[in-house]
Simulated assay, not measured.
Amino acid sequence: MSLLRVSGLSRSFGGLKAVDDVSFDLEAGQLLALLGPNGAGKSTCFNMVNGQLRPSAGSIVFDGHELVGRRPRDIWRLGVGRTFQIAATFNSMTVLENVQMALVSRERKLFGLWKAASSWFADEALHLLEQVGMADDAHRACGVLAYGDVKRVELAIALANRPKLLLMDEPTAGMAPGERSDLMALTRRLATDHQIGVLFTEHSMDVVFASADRMIVLARGKLIAEGDADTIRNDAHVQEVYFGTGKTFQPRASLAGNGPAAGAPR
Rank of each mutant, 00 (worst) to 15 (best):
T94I: 05
T94M: 09
V95M: 10
V95Y: 04
E97C: 06
E97W: 11
N98L: 10
V99Y: 03
Q100F: 10
Q100S: 04
A102F: 02
A102C: 05
A102E: 00
A102Q: 06
V104D: 02
S105H: 14
R106V: 09
R106N: 09
E107W: 05
E107I: 03
E107D: 07
R108M: 13
R108L: 12
L110E: 06
L110W: 10
F111M: 07
F111E: 12
F111W: 13
F111K: 14
G112H: 14
L113Q: 08
L113R: 15
K115A: 13
K115P: 02
A116R: 15
A116W: 09
A117R: 15
A117D: 13
A117Y: 11
S118R: 15
S118Q: 14
S118G: 06
W120C: 03
F121T: 04
A122S: 13
D123Y: 05
E124L: 04
A125C: 10
A125M: 12
A125Y: 12
A125R: 11
A125K: 07
L126M: 00
H127Y: 06
H127M: 10
L128S: 01
L129K: 09
L129A: 04
E130H: 12
G133L: 03
D136K: 15
D136I: 06
D136Y: 08
D137H: 15
D137Q: 15
R140N: 12
R140P: 00
R140A: 12
C142D: 01
C142T: 12
G143S: 01
G143W: 05
V144Q: 03
L145S: 07
A146M: 08
A146T: 04
Y147S: 03
D149E: 15
D149W: 04
E154R: 08
L155G: 00
A156H: 03
A156C: 00
A156T: 02
A156Q: 00
I157N: 03
I157A: 03
I157R: 15
A158W: 13
L159G: 04
A160K: 11
N161W: 05
R162T: 14
P163F: 11
P163S: 09
P163I: 12
